[in-house]
Write a protein that binds this DNA or RNA. Structure first.
Lengths: 194, 194
DNA sequence: AAAATGACCAAAATGCTCATTTGGTCATTT
DNA sequence: AAATGACCAAATGAGCATTTTGGTCATTTT
């Protein structure tokens, strides 16, 4: 019944971290939410941070699946990238709790949990990079360094979704996609000098 | 002698805020560094935050001057934007203390001093926007919204200078300029559909 | 026997008190 | 009239008592 418990605990922990953040989540709460004894958690996970890592890893996997599923060879690069970004938007909406966590962890978290959150960022950038590389191999885009391009794409996306909203008010999904298309994708698709 | 004192105080305060940050700076230290009595500060500035504002405003003015001076009509838009970004890089180097302040204020500062730091950001974006508008009027670039373009340019620049360094190591000035040129400017200069 | 559990403990977090520091004032000095 | 620093109320932080919490392990359950 160990594997069954693992899922229970992981789900309880995900709820707890979502509701209370990292610091606000106690192992007692996780145990209660998961409906298991506190000691049981420690038969599967080394400690709180390990549990946190596992929850994030689960989110990362979900996300990578979603990303993977929107690469459609028949689609144009631009369309694929659009799909990917829409998925990123949807993902953010579903897991907007995770974004709160990002903030909290950066402010109060330990070094370890900071690194854990960075892994999420790296995973997203990695997904984007993968798509860019695929496009690159088909000569659909030009870039000397798909990793940097993915990094910039991600940062620009985050700036539009979060920073812009803070300063000038929220932007619709449509507007964000359009802005990225005009200001970032265009160069990728047309600039042969990269 | 009031105007003379004002400069003394402003310089002392600039040093103090640079050395100790906002919280770490006491009015006694400012008075000592400026070589004036503490009470004197309050004949010119309403309070600590007002003084902080004044110091930032001075930095903003310096920065705007530098920016203004690198708009050369004979130069191409791309060159002008390059100059502006190089100046921004130089500016950051000289006032890198200010960047520390940004962090500190965001973490521990009052709402007021946060807004004060935002003004610096807005000033930089404003400078970029001004240059973009000038270029737009000469039909040298295309963009439906120079404010957003300036915002994105700034964010991308900051991401390259700070976030990228944190993740993958520092980028040289040359590399940063090149990346911005390839990934951002290109669309501005070529994408007539904006 | 193997898995699950919750009472238990050391350590960390929190609340609280009180001495010190600090932003700001104002009577005095220059 | 301008400048000043002793002075004050409020904010801060060190130090301590109390509570909470991550993690363990002897006991119970299956």
């Amino acid at each position: 019944m160990l594997e069954n418990k693992r899922k229970l605990i992981l789900d309880g922990a995900a709820s707890a971290f979502s509701m209370y953040g990292f610091k606000g989540t106690t192992m007692d709460k996780v145990a209660a939410l998961a409906g298991v004894g506190k000691g049981t958690i420690y038969t599967t996970f080394k400690n709180k941070e390990d549990l946190f890592d596992a929850v994030l890893q689960q989110i990362i996997s979900e996300m990578e699946n979603i990303f993977f599923n929107c690469i459609v060879p028949e689609q144009s690069v631009s369309e694929n990238l659009h799909s990917a970004l829409y998925e990123l938007l949807e993902f953010r909406k579903d897991h907007q709790v995770m974004m709160k966590l990002t903030n909290e962890v950066r402010m109060f978290g330990t070094d370890h949990s900071k690194r854990a959150m960075d892994k999420v960022e790296d995973a997203i950038i990695g997904c984007l990079e993968k798509q860019l590389i695929a496009a690159l191999e088909q000569d659909k885009i030009y870039t000397s360094n798909p990793r940097i391009a993915a990094f910039l794409l991600y940062k620009q996306y985050m700036a539009l979704v979060f920073d812009y909203e803070e300063k000038y008010g929220p932007l619709g999904k449509k507007a964000i996609a359009h802005l990225l298309d005009q200001h970032f994708m265009y160069a990728l698709v047309h600039n042969k000098e990269m």
